[in-house]
Design a protein around this nucleic acid. Structure first.
Length: 599
RNA sequence: GGUCCGGUAGCUCAGUUGGAUAGAGCAUCAGCCUUCUAAGCUGAGGGUCAUUGGUUCGAAUCCAAUCCGGAUCACCA
């Protein structure tokens, strides 16, 4: 889906190309990079990268050893700038990359803060994420969405795309009216100001109150002999809510005023949260503006016979041929439904912003909906039909099951961020390394560490998998976590500060195993950025950056930089350290995580 | 019932365009701070890759069947 011009040619690609050339020269047959596999060499064997021979055996009708020997020989002889040595074990051709190659890579890049990133292309991509409802505050599930959306946007930018972040606010509908009704019934004119509460939490409380009252009324009715189904329809509070929705659609001034007032409270609360977690948007869409969109497109679709009308006047699309069902796109009264709005909004985005790709960060419970949207667009033959991608992510669940706002069993976004900051504060004070920091510096540090730990926790796992969060166990600060990575960055930073200017002109090119492992890893950063974009998967970055930090941590414990065996060694290690710090900072930034200079 | 997703160490997860002895973190145990930040390092134990069968030089990875868990199939959004 995304193809890029790299800023430097990666060693794996060089290996593939030179292998293809060599095979051609040796055996007179042409291969492509898909005909053989290139792996990183396992640590227990000599070498950096490995070509697997088995797939070539059939076509060449030679034993793996024979092919390996000839190929290895040819590669080392003809591409000495890349390969210095080889060995063959079973069907595996292990190649050692020339020390000078690594040295040159280091010298060219050790101060390049753009290392690994791709040059600008002409693609415009929109990432839609967050998409909150205005009847309740954000919870942990929203945070996963926000962090994913932000990170994917950053990853796409690093791949050279121009990215627009957008947000569709779900600001109308029955759920909003529930909070409104409850406030009328139980609020006694209270406001966030009068109760000293955050606007989104304030409104969310009334959403919970609605459901408590609703349950009570249903129970009463059932006790008086009504069936549960009828009771759910007949409960006075539900009837009042439905009336309010109709009044809203009829634009009754007092309902609209109430709606505007309560939404403004929620937005004030959201602003605080978004600012705190570092989310922002280039385009805001409000469902109260877009819910009528798409009707014109449906009309065009009717003309093209993509849609059909049922006797009652409702409009449908038949997707049974694609393994799905019939799907309604316009109600019999002519009003649009969810999918109709999305068709309309997709069109609006395309027209207004001339975007080439559109990414929707939406939970996997909407896989079916997004599939329908993509299918409808294809059948309508709109130009952007193949450029709609769903970044589907799994729910964040508690050990007790799903989080439910209605029942108040949610991990609140503001609460969890504050809690993480407190843990960061306690831990920092315990260690006592930054006693000279002033109050602002301390707050910034707690924020970076606490929020970083949370972001990393949510981003390090494959988005499409659901995850379980146990509020009883606090999120770890050790091991595969952001604080560990941040800590390594801070160590490198202080080391580099102590040692001053780095000599860029090195002749020595001998690497100890850990030094070599680091350079090999760092060289892969560019390819990792590409892979993360292709898969729309920030966990690729998280895992990679952790591996870099972990390897550096071993290196740091094993080898002294300041007191290296020789001046040349010292300079080499400083270059490695410098590039490591650049990659850590850059990679963490792709995850939306700030690295502190000290901690 | 149809469709889709998942099941890997006690726990949380990597690894699936088929490759060498399946990897991390947490937790447990044993070592390591007079030397660049111990939020660290080194090591140990811990596995029927849900089950069964198949494909082949080779399967956690591909195919089939089965079991378990989840999502979805609204004139809600």
């Amino acid at each position: 889906m995304y193809t890029y011009t790299p800023s430097y040619m990666s060693i794996v690609i060089n290996l593939q190309k030179s292998t293809i050339d060599s095979l051609q020269a040796l055996f007179g047959q042409s291969f492509s990079e898909k005909d053989f596999q290139v792996n990183q060499t396992k640590p227990e064997f000599e070498g950096d990268y490995t070509v697997v021979m088995f797939s070539l055996v059939k076509t060449l009708k030679l034993s793996p050893e024979v092919i390996g020997t000839q190929l290895g020989d040819h590669l080392v002889k003809n591409f000495p700038q890349y390969f210095s040595d080889y060995n063959i074990i079973k069907g595996f051709l292990n190649l050692s990359v020339a020390d000078n190659y690594w040295l040159q890579l280091l010298q060219d890049n050790y101060q390049d803060i753009c290392f690994g990133k791709y040059p600008l292309n002409n693609k415009r991509v929109m990432v839609e994420y967050s998409s909150p409802n205005t009847n309740k505050p954000l919870h942990l599930g929203h945070l996963r969405n926000n962090f994913l959306g932000w990170s994917v946007a950053e990853i796409l930018k690093a791949n050279g795309n121009t990215v627009l972040k957008s947000c569709i606010v779900n600001d109308r509908g029955i759920h909003i009216c529930k909070s409104m009704i409850a406030w009328q019934l139980f609020g006694n004119g209270a406001t966030p100001q009068s109760t000293h509460s955050k606007g989104d939490h304030f409104v969310g409380e009334y959403y919970v109150k609605f459901n408590d009252e609703y349950k009570r009324q249903v129970k009463d009715l059932v006790e008086n002999g009504m069936t549960e189904k009828d009771a759910e329809k007949e409960a006075p509070i539900m009837k009042a809510t439905q009336q309010m929705l109709q009044d809203w659609e009829a634009a009754k001034p007092e309902v609209i005023d109430l709606w505007k007032m309560m939404n403004s409270w929620v937005y004030a609360g959201f602003d605080v949260t978004y600012h705190n977690i570092g989310s922002d948007f280039d385009r805001m869409y409000y469902e109260s503006n877009t819910y009528l969109l798409g009707k014109g497109i449906v009309q065009k679709g009717l003309d093209k016979n993509v849609f059909f009308t049922k006797p009652d006047g409702s409009v449908w699309i038949d997707l049974t041929g694609d393994g799905l069902d019939e799907k309604l796109v316009l109600r019999k009264d002519g009003t649009s439904v969810y999918i109709t709005q999305d068709i309309g909004l997709a069109d609006q985005k395309y027209e207004e912003d001339k975007i080439d790709e559109s990414i929707y960060v939406i939970g996997d419970e909407q896989n079916y909906h997004m599939k329908v949207l993509q299918l409808i667009c294809k059948k309508l033959e709109v130009p952007y039909a193949n450029d709609i991608h769903h970044l589907s992510y799994g729910m964040v669940e508690l050990p007790t099951g799903k989080m439910k706002s209605r029942e108040g069993t949610v991990v609140d976004a503001d609460d969890i961020v504050a809690e993480m900051e407190t843990v960061a504060k306690n831990k920092t004070e315990e260690l006592g390394k930054v006693k000279d920091f002033n109050e602002d510096e301390l707050l910034a540090l707690y924020h970076n560490i606490g929020l970083g730990a949370l972001k990393f926790f949510l981003l390090r796992v494959d988005p499409k998998k659901k995850m379980i969060f146990n509020p009883e166990e606090s999120i770890d600060f050790h091991g595969f976590t952001a604080p560990f990575i941040q800590y390594n960055y801070a160590r490198i930073n202080s080391l580099l500060k102590k040692n001053g200017e780095i000599n860029s002109n090195l002749k020595m090119a001998e690497f100890l195993p850990l030094e070599r492992s680091l350079v090999v890893l760092l060289e892969q950063y560019q390819q990792i950025i590409g892979q993360a974009a292709e898969e729309l998967n920030p966990s690729v970055i998280a895992i990679y950056i952790y591996t870099v930090a972990k390897t550096y941590s071993s290196f740091f414990a094993e080898h002294s930089v300041s007191n290296a065996e020789s001046e040349e060694k010292k300079q080499l290690r400083l270059q490695i350290s410098s590039l490591t710090s650049i990659v850590i900072k850059s990679g963490m930034q792709l995850l939306g995580i700030t690295v502190p200079e000290r901690m």
